[in-house]
C-alpha cells in the first residue's frame, strides 16, 4: 500500500502547509436545542469565510449545505470550523441534518 501511504503523507504535508495560510476570523455560530443562533449569517460576498460552529447540544449534528458545499459532523459539546468558499451575492440555506425540522439557517452573502 505504498500508494496509500504516500497519499496520506502528501495530505498531511499539505495540511501543515495550509495551516500557515491564515484563515479569516471565524464567525461564531451556536447550535442549542437543535436551533442555530444566529440563524441568519451575513457575510461579505466574494471572500472566503469561516464559521466556528459550537454544538451546545449533547448530541452530534451534521452541518449540511449543498449550495455551500459543506458537510461536517460536529460532536456534541464541541466546535467545528466550517470553511466557506467565496460566495456570489445571494442566500445559501444550511441545516443540521439530524434535526432538520428545527436546525435551519441561511448564509447571506452581500
Amino acid at each position: 500500500m505504498t500508494m496509500t501511504r504516500l497519499a496520506f503523507a502528501a495530505l498531511a504535508a499539505l495540511a501543515l502547509a495550509s495551516a500557515a495560510a491564515a484563515d479569516p476570523a471565524p464567525i461564531p455560530v451556536t447550535l442549542k436545542n437543535h436551533q442555530f443562533t444566529p440563524n441568519l449569517i451575513k457575510v461579505p460576498a466574494n471572500e472566503p469565510v469561516v464559521l466556528n460552529v459550537t454544538n451546545a447540544d449533547s448530541l452530534a449534528e451534521e452541518f449540511d449545505s449543498t449550495p455551500l458545499k459543506v458537510e461536517k459532523v460536529i460532536a456534541g459539546g464541541q466546535s467545528g470550523l466550517v470553511r466557506i468558499h467565496p460566495l456570489r451575492p445571494g442566500r445559501y440555506a444550511f441545516t443540521g441534518e439530524y434535526h432538520s425540522a428545527t436546525a435551519q439557517g441561511v448564509v447571506v452573502a452581500q
Binding site: M3, T4, A7, F8, L11, A12, A15, L16, S18, A19, D23, A60, K72, V73, I74, A75, G77, Q78, G80, L81, R83
Partner: peptide, 30 residues
C-alpha cells in the same frame, strides 16, 4: 469514526474530518 468524531475533527487545525473523508475517497478511487 462516530465514537471519535470529535477527536478526528480536531486534527489538522480543525480540518481532520474533511481530510479523512478526502483520503478515504481517494483510496477508494485508487
Amino acid at each position: 469514526v462516530a465514537a471519535f468524531a470529535g477527536a478526528l475533527a480536531a486534527l489538522f487545525q480543525g480540518a481532520g474530518q474533511e481530510l479523512f473523508n478526502a483520503a478515504i475517497l481517494l483510496i477508494a478511487v485508487a
